[in-house]
């Protein structure tokens, strides 16, 4: 049966849920265990990618290069991936990550802005890295636009192009439509990255695989932004039942989820009202904790902030708009009271 390659994102996407406070020890332990469970790719970076440590997104507790280095040392089977969002991280950051052993880079842009990834993808190719083009907030563009942008990434040298449902806003039919169109338009591999904000991560992932996606992201115990991603240990089990090979030992994955991840989670990764609202309103999943804090500061319902951010078509990375929108809402509330 067909082969699906899974990338575990708990050490990158999960960094949002951990407020970017992963320690070298945690990364070492988790990577070693994932490596033993035969997970092919493990992504390690600040939640917002290389160079993401900032007041805007949250300062890293430990320099991400130290975390990447620890992961590289702990893995003899799994390949270590890093995320790079042009405008936040730079080619210099990429070269530093490559120097310490990162094998793959995923260069991420908003779904309509693929052309800013050209230099980074080309440099990664020159460095001999495996390359992925990562089209974030894919729900915000019509299918033809998505294809046009994916083709750009393909032309820059991406080995794989991902449809990234950063807001967890896509419905299964929409995922199927997008992957099917990309499968027809591109020759490179197609990937899919889900968020579980509408409880559709697994359903969407299966829809993507059915249409030809072969690269899939998961986060063990749903340790990702918002309500997390497709739960890796569950995905491994489901695919095994479907006769689709992933190479992952899902029994070991269950142990990692239960014994290593669960004890370090700041809270359970369930679909809270904020995550649900993000999926409903189409808001970037890493806004969850920032919106909670802003709601507290301005005495607002965090859902109202998230809905307004969705209305204003705020894109990934615009965390500063959360405070801006909250301040505006607080002002309006005062006037109406």
């Amino acid at each position: 049966m067909s082969k699906i390659k899974i990338t575990e994102v708990a050490l990158r996407d999960g960094s949002h849920a951990m407020s970017h406070q992963y320690t070298v020890e945690q990364v070492k332990t988790i990577t070693k265990a994932l490596n033993d469970a035969s997970v092919p790719y493990i992504e390690v970076s600040h939640g917002d990618g290389l160079g993401g440590s900032s007041i805007q997104y949250g300062l890293s507790g430990t320099d991400e290069l130290k975390l990447i280095e620890a992961a590289v040392e702990a893995a003899d089977f799994s390949k270590i991936a890093v995320l790079l969002i042009p405008g936040i991280g730079t080619i210099e950051d990429l070269k530093n990550a490559h120097r310490i052993g990162a094998d793959m880079v995923r260069v991420a842009t908003h779904v309509t802005e693929a052309d800013v990834s050209k230099q980074h993808l080309e440099t990664a190719k020159e460095l001999g890295m495996e390359t992925v083009g990562f089209l974030m907030m894919s729900h915000m563009a019509p299918v033809d636009k998505l294809i046009e942008q994916a083709k750009l990434m393909e032309s820059y040298g991406a080995d794989t192009v991902y449809v990234v449902d950063s807001a967890g806003a896509l419905l299964p039919d929409q995922v199927a439509e997008r992957i099917k169109a990309l499968r027809q338009a591109l020759t490179v591999d197609i990937g899919f990255h889900a968020h579980n904000n509408l409880s559709l991560a697994m359903g969407n992932t299966l829809a993507a695989i059915k249409q030809g996606a072969t690269r899939i992201d998961g986060s063990v115990r749903c340790l990702g932004a918002g309500a997390g991603n497709t739960q890796t240990e569950v995905l491994a089990a489901v695919l095994e039942k479907m006769g689709i090979e992933t190479g992952i030992d899902f029994y070991k994955m269950m142990d990692i989820a239960e014994n290593i991840i669960a004890p370090i989670l700041p809270g359970t990764q369930e679909i809270t009202k904020d995550s649900l609202t993000m999926g409903y309103a189409g808001v970037y999943s890493s806004f969850r904790l920032h919106a909670e804090r802003a709601a507290k500061r301005y005495n607002l319902d965090s859902r109202d902030i998230l809905i307004e951010l969705g209305k204003q078509k705020i894109v990934g990375g615009q965390e500063d708009m959360i405070i801006d929108v909250a301040a505006e809402l607080a002002k309006k509330n005062k006037i109406t009271v």
Binding site: S54, Q56, P86, G87, I88, T90, I91, E92, H110, T112, E113, V116, Q119, K313, I314, V315, G317, Q318
Partner: peptide, 29 residues
């Protein structure tokens, strides 16, 4: 786009007077 982040960060230090500078740019469609 790296030119923006790197040059702006340098300017924050050299002209703005910050000990350390960082710049991020976001495109919104």
């Amino acid at each position: 786009i790296d030119e923006f982040t790197e040059t702006t960060a340098k300017g924050i230090e050299q002209v703005g007077g910050a000990k350390k500078g960082k710049a991020i740019i976001i495109l919104n469609p």
